[in-house]
Design a protein around this nucleic acid. Structure first.
Length: 431
RNA sequence: UCUGGAGUAGCUCAAUGGUGGAGCGGGUGGCUGUUAACCACUAGGUUGGGGGUUCGAGUCCCUCCUCCAGAGCCA
């Protein structure tokens, strides 16, 4: 008999097929019993009626448990009483394995217990929906980049030194060459790629050894860095906005069911697909101070400031033109004001915080060198980076998207740790 | 690292300093359309570890451990 996927059963109405998967739940009522089967693509109800099956099949209900692996065969038919609108009237049932004492019940559990059982929690409905949204967001980002002439360019993960020199890195012993570090961003390497390919991106895990302990941080997370030659600050922001709005539309059209499972307010997401707001850092400071914030003109936004800024906005907000002291050495100076750099942070609405950091890069050899000397950076280690400004330097810009931050916002979940299969945080390395 | 909160059955939680309970899950039985089904019965405990106060500690005190939330840093 033909094996089909749960997501496709409506095309088999009135036909006999086989389905393979895991028991999601069981209910019995004397001479009839019901099971919910999940197969990775969806959930369907199966019915076993005493009159329609052999004694042996009927008695399987005493044997089956949540998460047992089975194959069922029977007639697909439409029925309003079934969740999803279709059900299968089971004739045959084969058991691959009976799951004994599955620890996660269909009820509320605490975060620590669920994280200890992350390898099993991944099967739960909300986690399933979240992982599918992550997949859609990931795929949408690469599709958008591909359609805008960006070429995939994989940056190294083991690097000899810090990219920006600002954050704490994980150290790894490296043969006779001393220490290597796990990359916190592939950006500097991407800048080499644009001189060959024009526009490039990388997408992979990056690592931060900071002892951040909030619901917005992971020590290992996936970042997409993009870099483009001949793109200046304004166009850089247009590319970022185009990307995020493309991702929103893809999630809304391709993840309807998943967003519903997560009880995401999709109206709020729909509203975000509109022209983004742009504020300079100075304007943001003035606005926040009028709302009672104590931040100064040379400070970064605090977590409270971020939510204060976006609470009255339906669309993400760009904060651009930052004081150079609080931004990285490679950002280009604003020709209008040497104390300002052409960087932009994109803050998601609804309090989800920063999802993109980008900037136009300094392309002048001498100005870049001065900045690096000012930051006391080891110049010998960065000779290759400085070379880019010696051999055909061009105006260029780039940005980085934190995948899990973006997924957290799109899916509307409270904590970033659920948006990656196996989250790594300061206190969590297992499973 | 700092500030606050929490640790009791497999899980989620109750219990005024005075006999540690319930729901879910497990087991047994019942029920022919269930929707985290329902009903009855049943098993299940070193109250995070150590020390102290008290006639008596899950409860009060000290200490250690673990976890959660927030801050800083960042995507």
């Amino acid at each position: 008999m033909q094996s089909v996927l749960v997501k496709d059963v409506q095309s088999y109405n009135g036909q006999e097929v086989s389905l393979r998967g895991w028991v999601y739940n069981l209910r019995s009522s004397g001479k009839i019993w019901f099971l919910l089967l999940r197969d990775g693509t969806g959930l369907i109800q199966g019915i076993v009626s005493r009159n329609d099956v052999t004694e042996e099949v009927f008695n399987q209900k005493d044997n089956l448990t949540q998460e047992s692996a089975i194959r069922i065969s029977g007639l697909i038919h439409e029925d309003k009483r079934a969740p999803g609108g279709y059900e299968i009237i089971i004739k045959e049932l084969h058991v691959y394995q009976v799951a004994k004492d599955y620890p996660i019940a269909l009820k509320e559990h605490g975060a620590e217990f669920l994280m200890d059982n992350r390898h099993l929690w991944l099967r739960s409905r909300k986690q399933w929906a979240l992982l599918r949204i992550r997949h859609t967001v990931y795929y949408a980002i690469t599709q958008y980049l591909n359609e805008n002439n960006f070429i995939r360019f994989d940056s190294p993960i083991l690097t000899p030194n810090a990219c920006e020199g600002t954050t704490t890195l994980f150290e790894v012993p490296y043969f006779d060459l001393g220490k290597a570090y796990l990359s916190q961003s592939g950006q500097l390497y991407l800048e080499t790629g644009i001189m060959s390919l024009g526009r490039v991106y990388d997408f992979g895990p990056v690592f931060r050894a900071e002892k951040s302990k909030t619901r917005k941080h992971l020590t290992e997370f996936w970042m997409m860095d993009a870099e483009a030659a001949f793109v200046e600050h304004e166009e850089n922001m247009r590319i970022q906005e185009g990307l995020i709005r493309f991702v929103i539309r893809k999630a809304l059209t391709e993840c309807k069911a998943e967003l519903e499972i997560l009880e995401r307010n999709v109206e709020q997401l729909e509203k975000a697909d509109a022209p983004f707001k742009i504020m300079t850092h100075r304007e943001a400071v003035e606005y926040l101070r009028s709302k009672g914030s104590s931040m100064t003109e040379t400070e970064d936004l605090g977590a409270q400031d971020e939510s204060l800024l976006t609470e009255s906005s339906d669309v993400p907000i760009f904060i651009e033109k930052w004081p150079k002291e609080i931004k990285a050495f490679y950002m280009k100076r604003d020709p209008q004001n040497p104390d300002i750099v052409l960087g932009d942070d994109l803050i998601a609405p609804e309090g989800y915080g920063e999802i993109i950091g980008g900037s136009q890069r300094e392309d002048d050899y001498d100005l870049l060198l001065q900045r690096m000397i000012g930051e006391k950076m080891p110049l010998a280690e960065y000779q290759w980076f400085l070379d880019l400004r010696k051999y055909g330097s061009v105006p260029h810009s780039g940005f980085g998207v934190g995948l899990e931050r973006l997924v957290t916002w799109i899916a509307g979940v409270p904590h970033i740790r659920e948006t990656i299969p196996f989250p790594r945080t300061i206190y969590r390395l297992r499973p």
